[in-house]
Write a protein that binds this DNA or RNA. Structure first.
Lengths: 188, 188
DNA sequence: CTTGTCTATGCAACGAGTTGCATAGCAGGA
DNA sequence: TCCTGCTATGCAACTCGTTGCATAGACAAG
C-alpha cells in the first residue's frame, strides 16, 4: 500500500508523468522506496480511477507527449489519513546477510569479492547522497529558517547518508572477518 | 527467491519444523529476513517436492506431532550455487521516511508520537540483540578461535546492532527536526 | 536509411508476500 | 465443562512486485 503514498508525496512535491516518477524512484524518493515503471504505471491508473489523482495530457516538442499527474483533494485526504494511522516498525530484508551466514556451509573466502562489490556500491551511493546534500541543502542560504518541506527532505537524506556510512563500516567488519577465516584456513 | 535460501541456511544450522522456523524468523534469522508461517509452510512444501528438503514425522509428548525438515544434498548444492551467484545491493523500503516527507503536506508535529514509538521499538530491538550477543558470543570462551559459523553469525549480529544504533540516532535527529518545526509554528 | 538511444506508455504472466480463516492436540485454570 | 493459550499445520483469496515483451515518437551518428 505504501507505494500509493510514496507517489502521492512525490506528486505533491511536484506533479509529473509516470516516466518522471520512475526516475525519481531511482533518486530522491528511491533512497527509501523503490519501484519499477511498470508498477508505477499500474498504480497511477488505479489511483486515477479511484479519484486520488488527476491526469492531464501534455504535448511536448522534441519528445513524445506525456501524461502529467497531480493530486486531487481526495488524494490529499487519503495521504493525511495514512499519516495519522500508526505503522509497524520496519523489517529488514538483507540478502547479503543470508549469504554471509550461509557461507559457513561453503567457502567463506569465496564471498570476499561479492562483499567488496557491495561495499563499492554503497560508497558510490554515499558519494551521490553527499553531492545531493551539498547541492540542495548547503549552497543557497545561511543556516536560516528553511521551509518545512526542505527541512524534512534534508532529515530523510541525512538518514540515507547515515545508513550508507553504517553499512560501509559493517562491510569492512565483514571483510575483516572473512579474511581472518581465510587465514585460519578452511575447516579450521 | 531468497526465502528459500534463508530457510536452507536456517535448516543447515539446525533442522526443525515449520513452526520452529517461523519462530526463528522472529529472532535470529528474522534480524535480516522476515516471513510469516503461511509463507514458510508453502515454501517448505515446494522445496520438498523439488528434492531440496527431507521431511520426517516426529511424535512428541505433551504437544502435537511435528514434521522436521532437513537439507538434502541437492538442497546444499542449490545453496552453494546461489552463494556463488552475485546479487544486487539492497534497496531500502522505509515507510516512515515516506511519512516524514509527507508530513510537509500535513502537520509535522503530529508525527512526533509515531516517531517516538518507532524509536522505542528500535531501542527494544537493540537491547534484545545486545542480550543475545552477550549470551551467545561473549560468555563461554576467551577470544579464542571460534568456528566459522559462530564468527559469521556474530558479524551478522553486529550488523543488526549497528543498524539499530544508527536508526535510533537518526530518529533522534528526526525528532529534533520535528520539534524545531513545531516551535517555528505551523506555516512558518 | 538503418541503427541506437532516450523519452514515454503499457500488457501479460508469473512469483512473492499478506490476510483471513480453519483445524487440531494438549495443558491449565475458572 | 468450557475457555484460554500455546503448539502445530494448512487452504484460499488477494495484493504487491518482478520480468519479459511490445509499441512509438524524436533525434543523432554512421
Amino acid at each position: 500500500m505504501a507505494l500509493d503514498h510514496a507517489i502521492l508525496v512525490s506528486l505533491l512535491e511536484r506533479p509529473g508523468s509516470g516516466y518522471e516518477l520512475a526516475r525519481r524512484f531511482e533518486r530522491s524518493i528511491g533512497y527509501f522506496w523503490t519501484a519499477t515503471h511498470q508498477q508505477i504505471y499500474r498504480v497511477l491508473g488505479r489511483m486515477v480511477t479511484d479519484g486520488l489523482l488527476l491526469v492531464r495530457e501534455v504535448e511536448q516538442q522534441g519528445r513524445p507527449d506525456k501524461k502529467e499527474y497531480s493530486v486531487t483533494g481526495p488524494g490529499r485526504a487519503a495521504l493525511a489519513a495514512w499519516l495519522h494511522k500508526p505503522i509497524e516498525p520496519e523489517s529488514l530484508r538483507h540478502d547479503l546477510a543470508v549469504k554471509i551466514r550461509g557461507a559457513a556451509f561453503d567457502d567463506p573466502a569465496a564471498l570476499i569479492d561479492e562483499v567488496e562489490r557491495h561495499r563499492q556500491a554503497h560508497r558510490d551511493r554515499l558519494a551521490h547522497y553527499l553531492a545531493g546534500e551539498l547541492r540542495d541543502f548547503t549552497a543557497p542560504d545561511a543556516p536560516a529558517p528553511q521551509d518545512a518541506g526542505q527541512e524534512l527532505q534534508h532529515v530523510v537524506l541525512r538518514g540515507g547518508i547515515a545508513y550508507e556510512r553504517m553499512t560501509i563500516a559493517w562491510l569492512d567488519d565483514v571483510l575483516a572477518t572473512l579474511h581472518r577465516l581465510e587465514a585460519a584456513g578452511p575447516g579450521a
